[in-house]
Design a protein around this nucleic acid. Structure first.
Lengths: 128, 128
DNA sequence: AGGTATAGATTACAGGTGTAAATGATGGAG
DNA sequence: CTCCATCATTTACACCTGTAATCTATACCT
């Protein structure tokens, strides 16, 4: 693996759509993104091209248009963003990070219980 | 509050030192950063100047040199980085975020118990 | 078949960031 | 008093990102 693929914030909005549904045409992507983002269609096409150059997505020709597919998976992306955030901001101190999040973000009881289950599992369950 | 102060990754390394100890002179900062980062002294001075311009730090003259003080606090920084990360990567879904972190990062039993205590407190304790 | 709309490709441009060199100012050594 | 070392300031430059406009090729309508 050479230089890891860096996906910018705007580009990630395109990726999020492709992780939900694959493949999508440029016009589908444009249509959906314009519902939430105030971007011109040209802007979105720029992101598609940059993602192609970075090899974060690929396309297949389908007549006059392209069908876009993700190459980077959502899990790869989340893993790498998590790692870089944790190291950049907290120097890897995950305890501190979680503490800060819990301090400032309000969780629903559902979420709290889900996390408690995860923590329990982690405490018992070894790595194998 | 106008445009929020954005601290870049490199700049944050300077801030981290100032959050540990305040004030510091440029040469102290340079000396400490060069232990871990492969940066020239000029590079570090650039970061100091950019932080000054952003008003993330301030200085007081002390003879021929400056004493630097943080203006942005560590807590402000962490809060804003947390929020932007959570929104940028997880669209605000903190449950999903925590789950992903727990999935991939191994926590010590200590950390797990600390988190469990925090979650307990959060479940009972309201906001007041 | 020719013209037009449209999809994709190329080019643009300013601001931020990493990385530093060049310049300017000044306190201290001689 | 003058020159140098050293600190701070200014300038430099390439790459990334956000944000498009412009150019090119071509499928379709008439």
């Amino acid at each position: 693996m050479n230089a890891p693929i860096r996906i910018s914030e705007s580009e990630s909005e395109v990726m999020k759509l492709l992780w939900e549904q694959e493949p999508l045409t440029a016009s589908e992507i444009i249509e959906r993104l314009q519902r939430q983002m105030d971007w011109s269609d040209q802007t979105i096409k720029t992101f598609l091209n940059r993602l192609l150059n970075k090899e974060a997505i690929r396309f297949e020709k389908s007549g006059r248009t392209y069908l876009y597919y993700p190459l980077v998976t959502r899990d790869e992306y989340l893993r790498s963003e998590n790692r870089s955030f944790l190291n950049r901001v907290y120097d890897g101190a995950i305890g501190m990070m979680c503490a800060k999040f819990l301090e400032e973000e309000r969780l629903s009881d559902q979420e709290i219980e889900q996390l408690q289950r995860l923590l329990d599992k982690q405490k018992k369950g070894g790595d194998a």
